[in-house]
Design a protein around this nucleic acid. Structure first.
Lengths: 140, 140
DNA sequence: TTGTTAATCTGCATTGATTGCTAACTAGCA
DNA sequence: TGCTAGTTAGCAATCAATGCAGATTAACAA
């Protein structure tokens, strides 16, 4: 079952349902994240948002992204260098990052829920993050 | 083929072979990392080192760990929260982290080199990092 | 053993990413 | 239209890590 990326309208409803207000700043970020496959950082989104809404604060961008993540509408990706990337795709998937240009893509790994793991030592697993490191077609 | 954790003596040779000097500070860090399965942060190691060598600087700990990593004798683990963890096990393995206490363990994943990946879009893969998130036996 | 030199150490400043704080503002509701 | 709790902007503060420079020292040669 694939959980589709939510539309700005659906996110508005979701915010209201959680007792959160929907401001113009938040609506802008909803739109910027909708169907966004760039895996942007908060700074990148702030820069994009600033062109459409001069004066919006970086703090507000962080706050809204954090709220979205807390509601499960956004996934955080730590690629091990630089700032966290945000991904509106909350489907079961993983990532590949280009070590040269930093480009990140969604990838789908067969049976990633059923890996054979040795050495768990009593750990209960909640989730799995697979990160492939390599070089993209452009940088190769 | 398993690459064993190198002993302090072997690391000393490796440093010399790379034109690097071996200082008492470095020897101490070699010893502290040898067979260390705690996946410590630089700060943690600094704290451990300080008890045996008061006055050693955090900067030196970072420097030595960075040198070891550059020589491939150490692996960096980014668990997505807090500081980077250092792992003297450079064998092909992965990690599970307890989201409650931060404990990290080495795990071995069957066929992790042969995952079926969809959506690579021309990326060439150099390495794979699998991070399992969950709770350890103590925190469960 | 001593001298030379490049590498290293310490301590401090700086950067980068993110969060904390608060007064002014406003979305949502009565 | 007013009320009120949630939000925003801006700036300070924190945390992890790196940059820098003068004092120190490991390693090698004489």
């Amino acid at each position: 079952m694939v959980r589709q990326v939510k539309s700005p309208i659906e996110l508005t409803d979701a915010f209201h349902a959680n007792g959160l207000k929907v401001t113009p700043q938040r609506q802008l970020i909803f739109r910027l994240m909708h169907d966004n496959t760039m895996h942007p950082t908060a700074e990148t989104l702030f820069s994009d948002a600033s062109t459409q809404m001069p004066g919006i604060s970086l703090r507000t961008v962080y706050q809204t992204l954090t709220d979205l993540a807390a509601m499960g509408e956004l996934r955080l990706i730590d690629v091990g260098a630089g700032a966290v990337r945000f991904d509106p795709n909350v489907d079961d998937h993983h990532h590949v990052v280009c070590e040269l240009c930093g480009d990140v893509r969604d990838v789908y790994v067969a049976d990633s829920q059923n890996l054979s793991i040795d050495g768990l030592d009593g750990f209960a697993i909640d989730s799995t993050s697979i990160l492939f490191h390599g070089s993209c077609a452009k940088c190769a």
